[in-house]
Deep mutational scan, measured.
Amino acid sequence: KLNEKEKELCQMVRLVPGAYLEYKSALLNECNKQGGLRLAQARALIKIDVNKTRKIYDFLIREGYI
């Protein structure tokens, strides 16, 4: 299910792929509902370490998901 970049992200932030996909889905759904997504909203949405949230958020922006 994951592409190579997503696999690298999961290894870097030490997330299991299932958890990453869950977080990605939640962030994309919220982004679609709101018409955009700020980091503060992402942090409130997924209750994990803020540094991990930041890396996931930055990755999703860089890859054009949000």
Rank of each mutant, 00 (worst) to 15 (best):
R14F: 02
L37S: 06
E30F: 13
V13Q: 06
R43S: 14
K33R: 13
G64W: 02
Q41L: 03
V13C: 14
N32P: 07
L39W: 15
Y57N: 07
E8F: 05
G36P: 07
K24F: 01
I46Y: 06
L45R: 08
E63L: 01
A42R: 03
K1W: 09
A42F: 00
N3Y: 00
L45A: 11
K55G: 07
Y65H: 14
E30Y: 12
K47V: 00
A42C: 09
M12D: 15
K1S: 11
Y20W: 04
E4V: 08
K47H: 09
R43V: 15
Y20R: 01
N3M: 03
C10E: 00
K7S: 12
G64V: 03
Q34C: 12
L39Q: 03
L2R: 01
D49Q: 05
E8M: 10
E4W: 10
V13Y: 12
L28M: 15
A42Y: 00
L39V: 06
Y65G: 07
N29G: 10
G35N: 10
L9C: 00
C31F: 14
Y57D: 07
N51D: 15
Y20E: 00
A40K: 11
Q34A: 11
L45V: 11
G35I: 03
E63C: 01
M12S: 14
A19Y: 06
Y23V: 13
E8L: 12
I46K: 09
E30M: 11
I61P: 02
F59I: 03
L45S: 07
L39M: 09
I48N: 11
E8P: 01
E63H: 03
F59A: 02
E63V: 01
A44G: 10
G35R: 07
L39K: 03
D58L: 03
Q34D: 08
D49L: 11
G18Y: 07
E22I: 04
K5R: 12
R14A: 10
N29P: 02
A42G: 03
A26Y: 05
L45Q: 06
M12Y: 11
K24I: 05
T53N: 04
N29Q: 12
D58P: 00
L37P: 06
V13W: 05
N29W: 06
L15F: 00
E4H: 05
L15M: 12
K5V: 04
I48Y: 11
E22P: 00
K24L: 02
Y23A: 13
K24W: 00
M12E: 15
A44Y: 06
Q41G: 05
N32K: 14
G36M: 10
E22F: 06
E6Q: 00
I66L: 14
I48R: 10
G18T: 13
D49C: 12
G18K: 15
Y57V: 08
L60R: 00
A26L: 14
R62S: 11
A40D: 15
G18N: 14
G36C: 10
F59D: 00
R38V: 10
Y57C: 05
I48M: 13
D49P: 13
L37Q: 01
A40C: 13
F59T: 00
S25H: 14
E22C: 07
A26I: 15
L2V: 05
A19M: 12
Y20G: 00
N32E: 13
R14T: 10
A19I: 06
D58V: 00
V16L: 13
Q41P: 01
N32V: 11
N29M: 08
L37D: 06
P17W: 02
L15S: 03
G18R: 14
L21E: 04
S25N: 12
E30D: 07
L28E: 09
D49V: 14
L60V: 01
Y20H: 01
G64H: 07
F59W: 03
K47C: 06
N32L: 10
L39D: 06
C31N: 09
R38W: 06
R38A: 15
I46F: 07
Y23G: 01
F59Q: 00
K55D: 07
R43K: 14
M12F: 02
K5I: 00
A26Q: 12
Y20I: 02
E4K: 10
Y23D: 03
L2H: 05
Y23P: 03
V50R: 13
V13T: 12
Y57E: 05
K33N: 10
C31H: 12
D58E: 13
L9R: 00
Y65M: 14
L15K: 00
Q34L: 14
K47W: 03
I56W: 00
V13G: 00
